[in-house]
């Protein structure tokens, strides 16, 4: 059973001295704060420092201050969704022991998409609350399906099998989505704005809707951190360490799926954040999930918000949604990860 060694941690030194992690965490916090400030500052209308401070304080005396005030919920949503995606990626990579796990690659997003389309067209759903439930259900079904199918047979859930199962499932679900939408121009309109990942439509009410799910998912993930550490050693060893493997895996997976399903429900499918962030964080903090998960939250928040800002700066008046930016940044990163793996580990 060489399969149990499938994950090669990015860092060679397994244990990191605590100060490095603390410093890394503080550094990430600074980055998050900086990105958040940039998100409030830049856009179609760039605002100055004074207006920024006043706007955050709630003043609306100038256009600039009003702009800041409008950008606050968007920024918060970006941070929250990004954090959720980052944690979800870290957890999924841990659960599947697979360096390529990401909601986009594993077809989880396409499950959410199909579920939302079905909800829109056949169940007459039109509110964000119902989208959340439906999207989460779809994401969960797709995740379980891809994982079960991808882990059948020799070698368990290898990156290749999981990625192929995910890609093929995405194609199939995508075909179903267009089969449903093609004769229905009206629904196609409302769906396509959901379908493209972005946080531009963020408002306090959407944040309020999704927050309980995100908190629950985050708590579940943090609670499974220790179990994920044992799972990383392989199922046999984890059992030997007294771990209830299937329960630990189930709990962690539920956490990861809730996070990514809820994030997808409010912001549309956003790929590659969950892939990139944990890898970068591992370079910084090693492979201990008790550090990896919280730091991935910070990293995800920073990455998605930065992508959102970048999309605003590059796109000008027609902003480019954050999901596009993360895909364009993330795909080369994915390729890099694939290239550095040994062939037999794939």
């Amino acid at each position: 059973m060489t399969a149990t060694l499938a994950v090669k941690p990015v860092a060679h030194r397994v244990r990191r001295p605590v100060p490095v992690r603390v410093l890394g965490g503080l550094g990430l916090l600074v980055v998050v704060a900086g990105v958040a400030a940039a998100s409030l500052t830049f856009g179609v209308l760039d605002v100055g420092w004074d207006d920024l401070v006043a706007g955050i304080g709630g003043a609306q005396d100038t256009t600039a201050q009003a702009a800041v005030l409008k950008r606050v919920p968007r920024t918060v949503l970006g941070l929250v969704v990004g954090a959720a995606l980052g944690v979800s990626g870290a957890v999924m990579q841990g659960v599947t022991r697979n360096p390529l796990a990401d909601p986009e690659i594993l077809g989880v997003n396409s499950g959410a998409s199909l579920a939302v389309v079905i909800g829109m067209v056949f169940l007459g759903l039109s509110s964000q609350v119902t989208y959340i439930w439906v999207a989460m259900l779809g994401a969960a079904v797709a995740a379980v399906f891809v994982y079960v199918v991808g882990s059948l047979g020799r070698g368990g859930a290898t990156p290749l099998k999981l990625a192929l199962a995910g890609a093929a499932t995405s194609v199939a679900l995508g075909a179903l989505v267009s089969a449903i939408l093609l004769p229905r121009a009206q629904d196609m309109q409302s769906f396509r704005f959901w379908q493209i990942g972005g946080v531009g439509g963020g408002s306090w009410s959407t944040i309020g809707l999704v927050l309980p799910f995100l908190v629950a998912g985050l708590l579940l993930s943090l609670a499974s951190a220790r179990a994920l550490n044992s799972l990383a050693l392989g199922d046999e060893l984890a059992v030997g360490l007294g771990q209830n493997v299937s329960r630990a895996r189930l709990l962690a997976a539920v956490g990861g799926v809730v996070l990514c399903g809820a994030a997808t429900a409010v912001a549309g499918p956003i790929g590659f954040v969950g892939l990139v962030v944990p890898h970068v964080v591992r370079l910084l903090a090693g492979i201990d999930h008790r550090w990896l998960i919280p730091l991935s939250a910070l990293g995800g928040a920073a990455l998605l918000t930065a992508a959102d800002v970048l999309g605003r700066l590059v796109g000008g008046n027609e902003e480019i949604q954050a999901g596009i930016i993360t895909a364009i940044v993330g795909a080369p990163f994915f390729i890099w990860i694939v290239r550095r793996q040994k062939v037999r580990d794939l």
């Binding site: 690659i105 990625a163 192929l164 795909a331 390729i335 062939v343």
Partner: peptide, 29 residues
């Protein structure tokens, strides 16, 4: 290596599909 070819293809496809949905999002009905 075959495996690398497959995985990189999947990565590229994911990136291009987001390009597709971006272009679609700005289109007239």
């Amino acid at each position: 290596a075959n495996t690398r070819l497959i995985l990189i293809g999947i990565g590229i496809a994911a990136m291009l599909s987001s390009v597709v949905s971006y272009v679609l999002s700005g289109a007239a009905a």
